[in-house]
């Protein structure tokens, strides 16, 4: 067998799987979005009709979709930003020459990343219990009145963001640590010889040195946070209270798999995809321009 034949043979299984179980479904999803595929079509596929932009028209008129869109943007905007800031802060702390037991801290901070989201959500749901939860008990030490975390429309999303921070910040922290390690220490030595303050060093050495890492982290965090699903599914009974935690993926799931409005749900998925592409587009452009 020639090297060329072997090459094709070795990539064939993976390629076939990716085409059939990823690429094809993505393409079919675009088609599904312009049909009225529903529970009747599930029984008899010949009942499917082409409806053009009808699903998108319905979506624009659907207050639930807008709720989900706003909630998702809230989660991405506030949660994503706080998460990246916390990760950066933790990475800077661990990379500091003063820091000891670095390996231990890194391991503990990273551990929640590998934990099962559903199980974590179950634990936090109990943690947020207004009367018997650990969090309100802790806050009571500071004289804070009990908060009805998951039952109060104003607090439910912050509660989910807090959970996401707890679970995810270790991921970007590790990436930031790797990015920090690529900045040559001699730059800092030279800067402090020149009398640059810590803040100046951070602003003129650390931040520019982290630029590619920061762009990468922004892209992956945006993509990840847009896919909010398991947390509200488990913690707020699927988007409550009064839809304060309904996310786009949850809206898609309910429409598609609870009511079997698969055409409409596919249209929601397309909008989500377009949104992700749109938001990450400037970052990807920047990445391509600046990467060597």
């Amino acid at each position: 067998m020639s090297e060329r034949r072997a090459g094709w043979l070795f990539i064939a299984p993976a390629l076939l799987l990716l085409v059939v179980f990823f690429l094809l479904p993505v393409a079919l999803g675009l088609v599904l979005a312009v049909t009225d595929f529903d529970i009747y079509a599930l029984g008899d596929p010949s009942a499917v009709r082409f409806v053009g932009a009808e699903n998108f028209r319905q979506m624009v008129k659907n207050p639930l979709f807008f709720r989900a869109l706003v909630n998702t943007c809230y989660f991405v905007g506030v949660g994503g930003t706080l998460s990246i800031l916390l990760s950066l802060l933790a990475a800077l702390a661990l990379a500091s020459p003063l820091c000891r037991w670095r390996g231990f801290f890194r391991t503990v901070y990273f551990a929640p990343v590998v934990l099962t989201m559903v199980a974590v959500a179950v634990v936090f749901r109990t943690l947020y219990h207004p009367d018997f939860g650990l969090l309100n008990r802790f806050l009571k030490l500071f004289g804070v009145e009990p908060i009805f975390w998951l039952g109060d429309p104003a607090w439910a999303m912050p509660a989910i963001i807090l959970l996401a921070l707890w679970k995810n910040f270790g991921y970007n922290m590790v990436i930031f640590l790797a990015g920090l390690s690529t900045i040559p220490p001699t730059l800092y030595e030279a800067a402090s010889l020149d009398g640059a303050s810590r803040w100046q060093q951070f602003w003129h050495i650390t931040l520019p040195g982290l630029r590619p890492t920061l762009v990468f982290v922004l892209i992956t965090t945006l993509i990840g946070y847009f896919q909010l699903f398991a947390e509200p599914y488990v913690m707020t009974g699927g988007g409550g209270p009064v839809n304060a935690t309904l996310s786009l993926v949850l809206h898609m799931y309910k429409e598609g798999f609870r009511w079997w409005n698969m055409g409409y749900a596919a249209a929601v998925a397309v909008v989500l995809f377009a949104l992700i592409l749109l938001v990450t587009a400037p970052l990807r452009w920047y990445q391509r321009r600046w990467s060597p």
């Binding site: 179980f21 479904p25 599904l32 847009f226 698969m262 397309v270 990450t280 990807r284």
Partner: peptide, 13 residues
Amino acid sequence: LIPGQVAILPLFL
């Protein structure tokens, strides 16, 4: 760049 959710409905079918 493609999030898995886009594929999930057709994948199910």
